[in-house]
Design a protein around this nucleic acid. Structure first.
Lengths: 333, 333
DNA sequence: CTTGTTTTTGAATACGTATGCAAAATTTAT
DNA sequence: ATAAATTTTGCATACGTATTCAAAAACAAG
């Protein structure tokens, strides 16, 4: 293996100092045009790449953002990952990917992020304790929560307006003449599921519907499938089912169609997310579209503002989504 | 923001030298049990985390592996990402995620990997030129190709035995009495699609079938949908369709069912990958299962052997998959 | 207790870069 | 041509850690 090429090597070839080489690779440093050209030519000739590790040590700017993600097999999250990657790499950041296996971000995962001096962390669908946020903040790491929040207001958060969406979904199902509603939730400890449920029930209760059959589908296909089965066992007159995410809606639809129900003639199904698959003709799912692009744009802006010290206090931004009507909800009026 | 806690701070509190602190956090360094405990207690008290950036500069071991991935919205790849993450983080590595937007890994992406001194790079579904491999190797970076290879034998590769799989799929469709076969390929410049096609045609040609109708579906759902439409326009007697990946098979099935064909009564469809969705009752896809776990295990072993200098020359390992029969191929015998 | 051996530990250094500071070079004004 | 002002550049240093080397400490043998 060849000896590593450093700025010192380039300096020798170009006949300048190492600090000049560093300046040549900098945007704002003072270096004459002639010397800069000499240096860049020498660098090209030697195959020199600046060492980001050494630079990070000196500048205390790793240019690395951590993304903590749990359920990458829910198609919603690969889309989120891809879009976060695009925005952040466009701003010159590298992505350190952490696939959390547990509900809650682990101590060693927090330690890894600190050890690598990541400048920020984006938490997509894992839980984060206040203690973990404090530890990250104490180590100068910006934290942005994507579609979740914790109650201590110490971190930036960008959240789809889940409560309001739940309300509107409830209204939409009532307005389209559905009488016997059901709900399939995600895990009870997730703010997304809780808020969607609360919004939904808020609307129903205002119409005198005090409670409806619900099952926890765990935010998974299998969970949606099983939850639909369980619901239909005791509530065969159900005519509409709201699933707290799309992938459970797919599972619910698959259970219902294999059980002989017609979607949406016998029962309507509505999801939440608007993953790419929702548009597939096998599902043609009516769903609530999370404004992922807007949410990611805001999340990245909050993080970059925090990193650059232009932020006074953490913000919590709610962003409105919208209904996407396809073919899985019937207008029964 | 608090001042960063360093080994020097811990040394002062524990009454030892900075080098002793470093040794306390090392597995094999010489340090007395008493002193180690003193140091770890002081570190805990101060909230000290070793700085991986500084350590990387000294040891020339960043403990970072790059994963270059293109199509994260094909459900096959999030599964691959999750499993690579699990294996590599278990070996103490961090993952730097690169989402390539182009067919071929870009110069700036190679530069990023070099600048951050990643110890290895795994390429999943992007193309890599020989020049790029040479550049990475010249900078001491191990390269492993996942399910692709290039012809210069300079990099490790682990590949599903696509040719053999294509052969067996061909035989299976013939053995189950299908007469009019069709094929939907991926992009022509990908070794996976080429080898699956070659294996398939090898079997058919041995049975006197010289050519069959084919369309390029670009490895996407929409592409599969459109390709199926195009094929059926001119080959309405087709009774079996082999799609070079599952997601195109889903698209093909969705086109066919919306066009009134029954799967598999009117036409059988077989895919390749065995993504989680293949098992969903809406598709119940018969497919060829890529041995992802085995492939990843071998890929990680090759990389770690290369990184630790225990490898003499790059290897190319082919791994056999197997047929998964569900409900999308009819036995017409 | 003394001598020889082994282990532990701290000082010094290097890793590759960015930058402060001041000297050198260049430019501008008279 | 000279002086003043400005820009460019190199030297020295620091960033935080791991490790070499040698001194100090601890341990074992006689």
């Amino acid at each position: 293996m060849n000896k590593k090429v450093t700025a010192m090597d380039v300096a020798r070839l170009a006949g300048v100092s190492q600090s000049s080489v560093s300046r040549a690779f900098s945007k704002n440093a003072s270096i004459s045009i002639k010397k800069r050209k000499l240096i860049l030519d020498a660098a090209e000739k030697l195959g020199y790449q600046p060492n980001a590790i050494a630079r990070g040590l000196i500048t205390n700017q790793s240019r690395i953002i951590g993304i903590v993600m749990r359920d990458v097999q829910n198609p919603f999250y690969p889309e989120v990952l891809e879009k976060f990657y695009s925005r952040l790499s466009g701003e010159g950041y590298q992505i350190m990917f952490i696939n959390s296996q547990n509900d809650e971000i682990q101590e060693h995962e927090v330690s890894q992020l600190i050890e690598y001096s990541v400048e920020g962390v984006i938490i997509t669908d894992a839980l984060l304790t206040s203690a973990a946020v404090q530890k990250l903040n104490r180590n100068g790491i910006s934290v942005v929560l994507f579609n979740r929040y914790i109650s201590d207001s110490m971190s930036n958060a960008v959240i789809c307006n889940n409560f309001s969406a739940g309300q509107k979904i409830g209204q939409y199902l009532l307005d389209t003449g559905h009488l016997q509603l059901g709900f399939i939730s995600g895990p009870a400890n997730t703010s997304t599921s809780l808020d969607r449920s609360r919004g939904f029930m808020d609307t129903l209760q205002k119409q005198g519907i005090e409670s409806i059959p619900m099952e926890d589908g765990g935010f998974t296909y299998q969970g949606g499938f099983a939850a639909a089965k369980k619901l239909m066992k005791h509530h065969e007159k159900m005519d509409a089912l709201f699933c707290a995410n799309d992938i459970m809606a797919f599972g619910a639809i698959d259970y219902l169609t294999t059980a002989g129900y017609r979607i949406p003639e016998d029962i309507s199904v509505i999801g939440f997310d608007n993953v790419t698959m929702a548009d597939w003709s096998s599902y043609a799912l009516t769903t609530w579209k999370q404004p992922v692009d807007e949410m990611i744009q805001q999340a990245v802006k909050l993080m970059l503002d925090d990193i650059s010290g232009q932020q006074e206090k953490p913000e919590m931004n709610f962003v409105d989504g919208c209904l996407i009507e396809r073919a899985s909800v019937k207008d029964r009026r």
